[in-house]
C-alpha cells in the first residue's frame, strides 16, 4: 500500500472512532436527559448542555481529519506523493485522538448521564454537576494536542 492510503486510513480512524465514541456518549446522556425532561421539561436547557459534552470528541476527530487532509493535499485537490514511511507516520499521528476519543466519549456519556441525575434532583448544583463529565474531557484534549502536533510535525 502506498503512503497516501495509510494517511487516509489515519483520517478515517481519527474521524470514525472519535465520532462513534461521541455518538455513543451523546446517546447515553440523551437517554438520561429524556428521562428528566419527561418528568420536568423546565430542565431542558440544563440537561441539553450535559448531553452535548460527549459530542466534542467527534469534533476533535474531525479537526484532526481536516488538518491531515489539508496536509496531504487531498483538500486542495492535489494529493501529495507520500512514501510508505510518511504515510505510516501520519496514520500513527491520527491514532491518539481516534482511540482516546472513542473511549473518553463513551465514559463521558456515562458520567454525563449520572450528572444529569444531580441536575434532576438539585438543579442549583448544575455547575458542580458539569465538572464531573468535564474532567473526562481533559484526556480527549491531551490526545487532540498530540495528534495535531504530530500531524503538523511530519514533513510531507
Amino acid at each position: 500500500m502506498s503512503g497516501i492510503v495509510w494517511a487516509l486510513i489515519g483520517v478515517a480512524v481519527a474521524v470514525g472512532l472519535a465520532g462513534s465514541g461521541s455518538a455513543c456518549g451523546v446517546g447515553i446522556a440523551g437517554q438520561a436527559a429524556s428521562g428528566v425532561v419527561t418528568e420536568d421539561p423546565s430542565k431542558f436547557a440544563k440537561v441539553l448542555i450535559m448531553q452535548l459534552l460527549p459530542g466534542t470528541q467527534g469534533i476533535y476527530g474531525l479537526l484532526v481529519g481536516f488538518i491531515t487532509l489539508s496536509k496531504i493535499g487531498i483538500l486542495g485537490g492535489a494529493p501529495a506523493d507520500l512514501d510508505l514511511a510518511t504515510g505510516l507516520l501520519i496514520f500513527a499521528a491520527c491514532l491518539p485522538i481516534g482511540i482516546a476519543g472513542l473511549i473518553s466519549a463513551i465514559y463521558q456519556g456515562k458520567t454525563s448521564a449520572a450528572a444529569i441525575g444531580i441536575v434532576a434532583k438539585k438543579p442549583e448544583q448544575f455547575g458542580k454537576a458539569m465538572l464531573f463529565p468535564a474532567m473526562v474531557e481533559t484526556y480527549a484534549i491531551l490526545a487532540l494536542l498530540v495528534s495535531i502536533l504530530a500531524v503538523s510535525g511530519i514533513p510531507v
Partner: peptide, 10 residues
Amino acid sequence: TYAVARIRAR
C-alpha cells in the same frame, strides 16, 4: 439510564 433519570426527577 432513562428509567433512573426519570426516577431521579420523581
